[in-house]
């Protein structure tokens, strides 16, 4: 099954199964976010007299910075996996740390954004719209937070054990997860922020 061109993370049968299993899990995550989006669309205009979407509370500049940070982090995590394929432990480590820092920057911006929403009188308890908004953004943000903790722990393992069949498949899976969050963000950017500001 495996030849010498097979990447390290796919070498053992168990790693192959882990990666496939993670893809299936991402399938479940797609359903999860699809449900969050659908609910948001249902509730979007139910502002119950509170602030609505669009210009009421969204700040374009901050959203653009968030988008820039997260998209770049997806790129750096790709570079990290590229380094891993070249057995470049230092490159892997550095690019992953860059990814984490960008992710943390995104989170910082997002928390500020939430504080801004609350300041504008849009808390999670205000209306159907804010409930849908906060849970959609919040679930994504919670995923990013989890990703940062998870990857940090994997990096500790990497430093201790080096690039092995096991650590490489774990980091590869974590990078799939990270890219996935990026894709979700693109949908949020388009269907929550842009749509909210244009329509």
């Amino acid at each position: 099954m495996t030849s010498h061109t097979t990447p390290l993370e796919y070498k053992s049968h168990q790693s192959q199964m882990n990666i496939l299993g993670f893809w299936v899990f991402l399938g479940a995550e797609i359903v999860l976010f699809a449900t969050l989006f659908a609910s948001y669309f249902v509730l979007e205009h139910n502002t119950a007299g509170g602030p609505g979407g669009g210009a009421d509370i969204f700040v374009l500049k901050d959203v653009l910075i968030e988008t820039f940070l997260l998209l770049t982090s997806s790129f750096t995590s790709g570079l990290a996996i590229h380094a891993m394929r070249n057995h470049d432990k230092k490159g892997l480590l550095l690019w992953m740390i860059a990814t984490l820092l960008l992710g943390a920057g995104f989170l910082f911006m997002e928390i500020n954004e939430f504080l801004h929403f609350i300041h504008e009188g849009a808390t999670i308890q205000t209306s159907g719209f804010t409930a849908g908004l906060f849970t959609l953004l919040g679930t994504h943000g919670a995923h990013v937070t989890f990703g940062i903790i998870w990857i940090s722990l994997l990096l500790v393992q990497l430093v201790r054990r080096g690039i092995t069949e096991k650590t490489s498949s774990k980091l590869f899976i974590a990078s799939l997860y990270w890219h996935f969050l990026d894709v979700v963000w693109i949908f949020i950017f388009t269907f929550v922020y842009l749509k909210g500001m244009v329509m």
Binding site: S39, V42, L43, N46, A48, Q125, S127, G128, A131, G132
Partner: peptide
């Protein structure tokens, strides 16, 4: 105390 499903504050029980 959110309002996903409460009619009064813009929630939707049919959701």
């Amino acid at each position: 105390g959110t309002h996903f499903f409460t009619v009064a504050a813009g929630g939707d029980p049919m959701l």
